[in-house]
């Protein structure tokens, strides 16, 4: 496989995953706004933080307002992490690597782009927003379905899933980090209804609220939430799950190419760290510090994969 093709697959998958994650953040923010009269600056602020575009937003807009945030994060092509911009980049990468994709998969990605572009031609009204977000969710599911159902389990698949999981791990860590302060035991309003709503938003942003309730029977504590999103390998958006999957892909590349690369060491070290650490250690040493460190290592792994598999000259 061409190094450039591997790069295209990896970035296609990352951007596709990012588009979906960003849409999910808006969904969570929107839901908070519906359930809480005073939902405002702080919640939408954490949406742009978790989406990774707080600075870019504040350069363009003076105040944090629901409609402005939604538009910026959903439609604004000048914002490189908006859903439209990331989907466009994902599709460009898919076009670049068309020869590596099944026809079904390419069509589902192309469809994702065409229907979303059409749906977001104008700014959706508040009444239309849930439908648009739902559409994005469905289209994303279709891409995942065609990937799972039609792609050969070879290096093509491995590079796609490395992209998906590295992006997803980054996103989950970012969601937690954007709200880490409401998870701290020192938080002044522990147990208040405000906290409950905030915690729920974290879980929703990671599509984990139902699973959490189901596993924890309604007993919501900050530590349990953080434990769930970081260490529970049953949850497909947890850091532990992401790294389990990353290991599988790297093993796959090892068995096909017969060569162990530096990125394998980085991934192994990070996976070992996730296994050896408990949520108590994390809270003792600082959740924010843990997440910052994780995101740094996750980024370093991504960079090393780019080197190891000759994505660029």
């Amino acid at each position: 496989m061409l190094g450039r093709t591997a790069a295209g697959l990896f970035w296609m998958a990352r951007y596709m995953e990012r588009a979906e994650n960003t849409a999910r953040l808006i969904e969570a923010g929107f839901r908070m706004a519906l359930t809480r009269a005073e939902a405002g600056e702080e919640e939408w602020g954490s949406v742009i933080t978790a989406a990774g575009c707080r600075d870019a937003y504040l350069e363009k807009h003076e105040t944090i307002r629901a409609d402005k945030v939604i538009d910026f994060v959903l439609r604004d092509r000048s914002n490189p992490v908006s859903v439209m911009a990331t989907l466009h980049t994902a599709r460009e990468n898919a076009r670049m690597t068309r020869t590596a994709l099944t026809r079904e998969m390419w069509e589902s990605i192309n469809d994702f782009w065409i229907t979303t572009k059409e749906a977001l031609r104008r700014a959706p009204s508040e009444a239309d927003l849930p439908e648009v977000l739902n559409l994005i969710r469905q289209q994303g599911a279709q891409v995942r379905g065609t990937t799972a159902g039609t792609m050969l389990r070879n290096d093509i698949y491995n590079f796609i899933f490395l992209g998906v999981m590295i992006e997803r791990a980054d996103s989950t860590a970012r969601i937690l980090d954007a709200k880490y302060y409401v998870l701290l035991p020192s938080s002044a309003s522990v147990g208040s209804s405000l906290d409950n709503v905030q915690w729920e938003m974290i879980l929703r942003s990671a599509s984990a609220e139902r699973a959490f309730q189901w596993l924890h029977g309604g007993k919501i504590t900050p530590m349990a939430i953080a434990d769930f999103l970081i260490f529970d390998a049953r949850l497909p958006r947890s850091l532990a799950y992401c790294y389990d999957t990353i290991s599988l892909q790297l093993e796959g590349l090892f068995s096909q190419y017969g060569q162990r690369m530096p990125s394998h060491d980085l991934a192994e070290a990070l996976e070992a760290r996730l296994t050896a650490t408990s949520i108590k250690d994390v809270f003792r040493d600082g959740l924010h510090e843990f997440l910052t460190d994780f995101m740094g290592r996750n980024g370093a792994l991504s960079y090393q994969i780019v080197q190891d598999y000759r994505f660029m000259e």
Binding site: M1, T5, D155
Partner: peptide, 26 residues
Amino acid sequence: DEMGVELVEGHDLHIVDGRVAMRTTQ
């Protein structure tokens, strides 16, 4: 795609030992 061969761009290619070669993941 239909032929089952690589689609390359100029920056994928390089002269190695006098031959045109494409940069693969290996």
